[in-house]
Amino acid sequence: MIAYIIRRTLYAIPILIGVNLLTFVLFFVVNSPDDIARAHLGVKHVTQDAIEKWKAERGYDKPLIINERAAGVEKITGTIFFEKSLALFAFEFGRSDDGRSIGQEISTRMWPSLAIAVPTLIIGIGVAVSFALLLAFFRGSYIDLWGVVICIIMMSVSGLFYIIGGQYLVGKLWHLVPISGYDVGVHGFKFIVLPVVIGVIGGLGAGIRLYRTFFLEELGKDYVRTARAKGLSESRVLFTHVLKNAMIPILTGVVVILPTLFMGSLILESFFGIPGLGSYTIDAIQAQDFAVVRAMVFLGSVLYILGLLLTDISYTLVDPRVRLA
């Protein structure tokens, strides 16, 4: 098991190198630091001095890959590639445009993100699985038919409208909870409720429909017929036999996104003013703060690969057929 995990972690290295090279090319090769500086400072009336100053402030004033002027190891280390790209492997994210340490920001901002994302995920799965089971139980009937149609209708509404509508109804019209803001501890609860509820509702349609197909697929299998031939009731067939098998794809599908929960939800956080990583990212994109975007790209990849690893491990826990080798 340990050996397997180590091996899988090694697999991740080439992928992270790929991500690293890709971001390097995107951020420094497609457009040179000069171009970026010019775009930032306004294209027309910008002096070369201003550009150099902008670059020096951010440490973009070095050569890209090889520093000819430096000597020894400095040839390699005194470059943008080394300082900005390779440093990511050591989780040294550098500073954002406003001069703050990105690493510091990440470690404080991930908690509000988790406070929204974790309950949203757990409640969302619970509700979706329950409704999906209900539809599977009544498969082929009008309950099932209209349930699916309602799911499709829910899926057809843009997530933005759930947020806007929820904020308008609950916050503005009924004054139940504040429209936006965040606080820690018990006081934070009132800020969390609405985003979580909206997050759950927004994902419900797709979730129910997906899980329903999982259940129906299992219901068509031979072992279900065996269970019925044993004289088990339909609900027992559904809740023990089918549910247990269908939970395998459901759980492993969830595990893969677990680590990325740290990243938070871009839209929810930004609409509700939650100071999490999602809103941090979106602000960085809108302010064209490339250092932050680059850091988040790398962090996202690391977390995704972690998710893949966890998925493999979780298979061994829920599926007796799978043994890691």
Partner: peptide, 9 residues
């Protein structure tokens, strides 16, 4: 092969 439930002993 397929008539037994794979996840129950």
């Amino acid at each position: 092969m397929t008539s037994l439930n794979p996840v129950l002993s």
